[in-house]
């Protein structure tokens, strides 16, 4: 794979002589010294259903639902141990939604299968 380095504009630059050992700031600030123009995390509205959170669409086959849920599980199980508290919180909510959707669509005695 060949990729191009991203040229970033930093609000606060990491000192250029921070050689050998780079000190990473405490968890809460861990992203702060490295402000990167990234899209924010998606917001998860209180009222969103498990289907909405997991982006399950009408007409998806059993296999498509399974693939979608397992992809989301991988992402959010990892995120549940992130250093970023906001991400960890979102991940817990998503894991609950993933499990709820799975019970509804993929369990042996579920309504759909």
């Amino acid at each position: 794979m060949f990729a191009r380095l991203f040229k970033l504009l930093f609000k606060r630059k990491v000192s250029s002589n921070a050689d050998v050992v780079l000190q990473v700031e405490a968890k809460a600030e861990i992203n702060a010294p490295f402000e990167i123009p990234m899209e924010p995390l998606p917001s998860l509205p209180e009222s969103a259903t498990a289907e909405e959170l997991c982006e399950l669409m009408d007409g998806m086959t059993h296999e498509e639902v399974r693939a979608q849920l397992s992809k989301l599980y991988r992402r959010h199980n990892r995120a549940a141990s992130s250093l970023n508290p906001e991400l960890r919180k979102q991940a817990e909510r998503m894991l609950d939604a993933i499990v709820e959707a799975r019970h509804r669509y993929l369990d042996f005695n579920s309504e759909r299968s």
């Binding site: 990491v14 861990i30 490295f34 990167i36 990234m38 995390l41 995120a79 992130s82 250093l83 970023n84």
Partner: peptide, 21 residues
Amino acid sequence: VDITQGEDDDPRYVDIIGRIT
């Protein structure tokens, strides 16, 4: 160069744990 921990392609879902300049 940002050092990330995590396997996700989407940078929002990984931890940036250091930087080398």
